[in-house]
Amino acid sequence: MDSPEKLEEFQQRIDNGEKIEPKDWMPERYRKQLIRIMSQHAHSEIVGMLPEGNWITRAPSLKRKMVLLAKVQDEAGHGLYLYSGTETLGVKRQDLVEDYLYGNAKYSSIFNYPTLTYADICVIGWLVDGAAIVNQTMLAKSSYGPYSRANVRICKEESFHKKQGYEMLAKMADGTPEQQKMAQDAVNRWWWPTLMMFGPHDTDSPNSAELIKWGVKTKTNDELRQHFVDRMVMEAEAIGIELPDPDLTYNEETGHWEFGDIPWDEFWSVVKGDGPMNRERMKARRKAYEEGEWVREAAKEYARKKRLQDEKAS
């Protein structure tokens, strides 16, 4: 059990704004929450490669093909250092991976929606990465050192992705009638799922208070969501895209944009595994993992043989 004195001392460090490092004492519950959040973040980066990877071979110019390939590569990189960051908490990457492939671990539900047209790629860059940046900018101030630093690095790359997505979407919104149709349709489909990325309302979010107390998060789900909506309304208007919410209204008093009801039934359904692409995404990831097993085994066996040879030689 964590003693009250130690807990008090830990809380004091958090309140002083100190970073917690891997070798520092931390409450078991803090460790568990971080493993959950960091590994979910890592899984999301990896599953997120699939909807975007869907358009690499069909990207409409060499420039866009390279931009997309580089973006997907960045996501593999984010996954890699998030897993490494999670390993500082005393867990193994392989166990974490198997936990989402065959167990109960979650990844961001946004990736359970299909990318139907190339405009979806632009909208993922603009909205989905835009939402991720709002979240990760906050997480860059997280109390856990390795997670905070990972988010600083991720945010830099995500900002670049968002800019690329927004620029191309602006071109489509200002392009031929077909491009305009694709652009608006993609926004219509991704808008509400993107708002769900921030998680349930604060009143329905059991972990929030604890995460904020420990400085893992510094803002609530609803605060982050509002910040995002306020920005996106302006950005959508600037490129002539409509957001699919008739209830969007500016509140002069609060200085915020008020928005309609988020379809939470859909959110919980997708979280529980019943979304348009949940089964396919998991199938694709399991297939890659299982078909890659002989490759990973070969690398291990080769390394073992080399070690034996080196030992004999010395």
Binding site: L62, M66, V72, Q73, G77, V295
Partner: peptide, 27 residues
């Protein structure tokens, strides 16, 4: 580039994407 997201391990997803990107960049 068809490997993107389907590699045998993360390190290889990175490496293959890198090689594909180089080749398409050269072209």
């Amino acid at each position: 580039s068809e490997w993107a997201g389907h590699g045998p391990e993360l390190e290889e997803d990175l490496a293959l994407a890198n090689i594909a990107l180089d080749m398409i960049g050269h072209a």
